[in-house]
Write a protein that binds this DNA or RNA. Structure first.
Ligand SMILES: [Zn+2]
Ligand SMILES: [Zn+2]
Ligand SMILES: [Zn+2]
Ligand SMILES: [Zn+2]
Lengths: 163, 163
DNA sequence: TCATGTAATGTTATAGTATTACATTACGTT
DNA sequence: AACGTAATGTAATACTATAACATTACATGA
């Protein structure tokens, strides 16, 4: 990981706090336990404003004085994924904060293979179509998001400039 | 990896040979170089009849007397992916033979998170819809297949039996 | 023939990602 | 106080993938 490109600035502190407050509310409603550690990991993910690797999170935790090892961060990420607060991006081995955690959704995430930036969309028709393809084969979809890789507009422009 | 469940029997030798012959023809047409090593890896992937991990392939190569190390198999897989003969499944870190290598296609692959089995479908409408979602954001898709995880009918049945 | 360039493969080492297994702590219930 | 459970701490290890450099095979042309 440790990609240096940064096209989209990290969210303002106020926005971060709003998202965290929303997570607090969600977990309270559901009776799930957003502990200080889990909340701290979520905050780190949100502050990044882009997909981040588990070991980057681990480094940040350590910087913040939390004596941590891999299971610490993987457990927190697992919880956050179950709660729909974080998505895992398998093609990049990264994790990102969900853009719309307040309602259950199954979304599409575009990730740039050059800079690692990601964009999460609401795609009302997509999973319906996927279910239609799956049904005749008896397959039951469990993924709550779909990652697809490509090249973002910034990196496309960079390619053109290089020629 | 090393999942023991085997619901779908491996392809008959005749089918394997047909697929290999097709790969030979494709690469000859394109002027690409399907070397003995690459062809051997492809044969291993085809014979599995299901997604297989890189280190499993490595073990098989060694069994067959080919002195191999990780780069050997990763390089072969990279070539085979470029030629559209093999797909990588990021959520499982596995590789599978393309079901329709004879024509360029961008397909949908269902993978079972329980047993690892996979099913590749022709999905004429899917990538068009994905492009429609991507276009307004200037995003350019490069993936040639889309993996989505769920539970296959056999494993669903196993769950019901367990209750 | 023989130098040279290129593609492919061999080889060693290391980087990066994730899980297992077991110990400890915190806290509510009986 | 004893117990049970959820959460976290800790050490070790497994699994996946790439970097870097050496060697081989072979085509091409001097
Ligand atoms: Zn989301
Ligand atoms: Zn980009
Ligand atoms: Zn295919
Ligand atoms: Zn299954």
């Amino acid at each position: 990981m440790m990609s240096s490109t940064l096209r989209i600035k990290p969210p303002a502190p106020q926005v971060v706090n709003e998202q965290l407050a929303q997570a607090d509310a969600l977990c309270r409603e559901r009776g799930s336990n957003l502990t200080p550690l889990r909340r701290q990991v979520l905050e780190l993910v949100i502050r990044q404003g882009r997909p981040v690797g588990a070991y980057d999170l681990l480094d940040s935790l350590r910087t913040q004085g939390r004596g941590s090892s891999p299971p610490t961060v993987y457990r927190a990420l697992e919880f956050l994924q179950q709660e729909g607060l974080v998505h895992r991006l398998p093609a990049q081995n990264t994790y990102m904060a969900c853009s719309h955690p307040h309602h259950h959704h199954r979304g599409l995430i575009f990730t740039c293979s050059r800079c690692g930036q990601a964009l999460e969309l609401e795609t009302p028709d997509l999973f319906g179509m996927l279910e239609d393809y799956a049904r005749p084969h008896g397959f039951e979809i469990s993924d709550d998001s779909l990652e697809i890789s490509g090249v973002c507009p910034f990196c496309q422009e960079a390619s053109r400039d290089a020629r």
